[in-house]
Design a protein around this nucleic acid. Structure first.
Lengths: 207, 207
DNA sequence: TTGCGTACTGAACAAGTGTTCAGTACCTTG
DNA sequence: CAAGGTACTGAACACTTGTTCAGTACGCAA
């Protein structure tokens, strides 16, 4: 029932857990569910990961590693992050949309991670924020960022807006008709976002 | 351990369930947990709500009612929503911050609702979107909205940004130092948001 | 071959789960 | 007072849960 790249039973169990945890939440998924999904016995799950908590931790660190690789792969392209181009700031969402298949369980798991109060999620958010700060500073240095009195809040604002699209993409698809995590939906969403970030959303006749 | 306004045991159970469900997620909360929190026996929980699922449904509809009241109370003030003032669009967050105490379990429960794929959450999101559309149209009619080729996406963008602040407020507090759901944090956040929506975030020398 | 370690199974166990129900207390209506 | 309904208790039940463990199969070194 599961087939990604790593065909070992251990990896299959981990991937199944990742998907099921993302779909239903870890508490609503039993060890037997995961074993059935991976096509192994319940005992093997505990054999490889020690306990259900051990499996949860393994999935967490696996997701962390995935993101680290993704970010490292992006940062090493100097044109994207260090250039200070405005595009740099919306690259989290575009990164996700471009680097993962559309039926990937990663976005759903990311949701749980960020919204469960989990320390792993907090660490991830902070790490992304630090990265966003460097992007903001680069934009500022190259003159592409409009001066702001509150650099931190501005950075957080832009980053959270970006993140929100990922977290709420299915609700957005519900009401505007296209999923912003797909290729075409991303273009539509980025077009609006870029427009607002360049010209604002309100008219400024008063004040 | 619980004391809001309704002192009946039934209401206490419902409020405890609301808080615990929000904190840990419904699957991680047992009927005995709720009973202990409300200071009653486990049997009484089932006596009042039939089953745990019945309690979950009751909490859902209770939250729905709370939001309906909140929105109705706001919409009936003609100056806020119908006027087309720019302030109207960020009023969800301000509404939440102003109308609920800062230790309220509502924001956390709202998170679960919106991110669990629950149909109740979907309905709530759509309902808010419809309301946002009327606000957008009002702003457009009064000339306060910059013309946009994609009204739906623009509305969703502004609304999702607003919602994101609520969903991620504790992470935001983590990195910028103030919780945007508090009085002072709200001012700081709104200041940035309003600035971006009025003047943009990027400079527009090129393109 | 023998031995050993690892992957793996599936039955079993103890704890925890939602739920049931007989029974108690209390208030209201006749 | 009696009668009945409602709020409420807590022990018990059936089931699911995570976890354990004896046992099997297989590959590899001696």
């Amino acid at each position: 029932m599961a087939s990604t790249q790593d065909a070992t039973a251990r990896a299959q169990i981990r991937d199944c857990a990742l998907r099921l945890f993302g779909e239903r939440g870890p508490d609503a998924v039993t060890v037997r569910d995961i074993a059935a999904c991976a096509g192994v016995s319940p005992g093997l799950v505990l054999h490889h990961f020690g306990s259900k908590q051990g499996l949860r931790d393994a999935v967490d660190t696996h997701v962390e590693t995935l993101f680290e690789d993704m970010l490292a792969h992006t940062v090493e392209e100097p044109d994207v992050f260090a250039s200070g181009e405005p595009q740099a700031l919306k690259s989290f969402a575009e990164l996700l949309a471009s680097q993962i298949p559309k039926d990937s369980p990663i976005p759903q798991y990311l949701r749980r991670l960020l919204l469960s109060g989990d320390p792993v999620g907090r660490a991830l958010f902070r790490q992304w924020f630090e990265l966003s700060l460097t992007a903001t500073d680069a934009m500022d240095a190259s003159g592409n960022l409009r001066p702001t009195p509150d650099r931190d809040a501005m950075t957080a604002f832009l980053m959270v807006n970006d993140l929100a699209m990922i977290l709420l993409h299915d609700h957005i698809a519900d009401v505007i008709g296209t999923d912003p995590l797909t290729q075409e939906g991303m273009q539509r969403w980025a077009s609006v976002a870029f427009d607002v970030y360049l010209h604002g959303a309100f008219t400024k006749e008063d004040s």
